[in-house]
């Protein structure tokens, strides 16, 4: 069985990794949800994280984004330590502002979209362009429309989230993240809250992104998508990385019993 250590090996030059994590652990109270995880993401790489519910895959993504502070280990974005700093040998939390600076290259898409309901689709996309990048309303609107066009929703610009379908909401959420020109996109179960017939439109947008060379980490239950799009698949269970590798090997020749089991259950459920 591959150990966690072998996971960072595929990255030849460490400098080049956009996201890198060493030995991160996370506890919620007594429960250890992540145990000593190493992770590394090269530019243009698409990594899918799979695993049963409660395996820690979403927590891993949230720790990599510092939405959950990790307890031990370190996460580097573009070589910069995220969330903590050394102050005379002691590790302390950095300011929120510093967190923002370090994770600026990261865009995130959530399972439940988290659009702002009091803003139109376009305003959801332009909010940060205006507040963070200081664009004028007109410039922000031009950029925002371009983003909505990219996800095929230019005609919904003036709609409020409540009048959009789940798939449309998620595409607006993707446009909102893309507007800030991220170099990495994190997707936390982006299609899990969608009706089955709406999953495709979101996955299509993501496929296009991957094809355009976007670096992506995707926590997902969509095995078919993972098999087609991922460069590497990580299988997690009980807070540990059990197995990882290219989808062809991982899905066809799973080494660990736990992954074989997981894939069998999935096949049984999806065969008919």
């Amino acid at each position: 069985m591959p150990t966690a250590d072998t996971l960072s090996a595929p990255t030849p030059t460490r400098q080049k990794a956009i996201v890198e994590a060493h030995g991160i652990s996370k506890q919620f109270g007594e429960l250890e949800v992540l145990t000593n995880i190493d992770f590394s993401l090269a530019p243009s790489e698409v990594v899918c994280v799979i695993g049963p519910s409660g395996s820690g895959k979403s927590t891993l993504l949230r720790c990599l984004a510092f939405l959950e502070p990790y307890d031990h280990g370190s996460v580097y974005i573009d070589g910069q330590l995220l969330g903590y700093e050394d102050r005379s040998g002691k590790r302390v939390r950095t300011s929120e502002k510093r967190v923002d600076e370090v994770r600026a290259p990261v865009g995130m898409v959530f399972q439940h979209f988290h659009l702002w309901p009091h803003r139109t689709a376009l305003e959801n996309v332009t909010e940060a362009l205006r507040l963070v990048n200081g664009l004028s309303r007109r410039d922000a609107d031009v950029d925002g429309m371009a983003m909505l066009e990219q996800v095929g929703l230019a005609d919904r610009a003036g709609h409020f989230p409540e009048s959009l379908s789940g798939g449309q909401k998620q595409r607006v959420a993707i446009a909102r993240a893309l507007a800030m020109k991220p170099r990495v996109m994190f997707f936390d179960e982006p299609t899990s809250a969608l009706d089955p017939e709406l999953v495709g439109e979101v996955l299509d947008v993501m496929k296009k992104l991957a094809a355009d060379g976007m670096t992506m980490v995707i926590v997902t239950h969509e095995m078919g998508f993972a098999a087609k799009v991922a460069d590497r698949v990580i299988f997690m269970d009980q807070g540990r990385v059990v197995e990882s590798g290219p989808p062809s090997t991982l899905f066809r020749q799973p080494k660990s019993e736990r992954l074989q089991q997981f894939l069998n259950t999935w096949r049984e459920r999806h065969i008919d």
């Binding site: 988290h114 702002w116 909010e127 963070v132 959420a173």
Partner: peptide
């Protein structure tokens, strides 16, 4: 989650309060 979404695109806690929390 709405605040997390704001934080992830660099909107400061203060701006999030004024533009996202208070209006709603």
């Amino acid at each position: 989650g709405q605040l997390e979404a704001a934080r992830m695109i660099g909107i400061s806690p203060w701006h999030a309060l004024i533009r996202i929390q208070i209006p709603q």
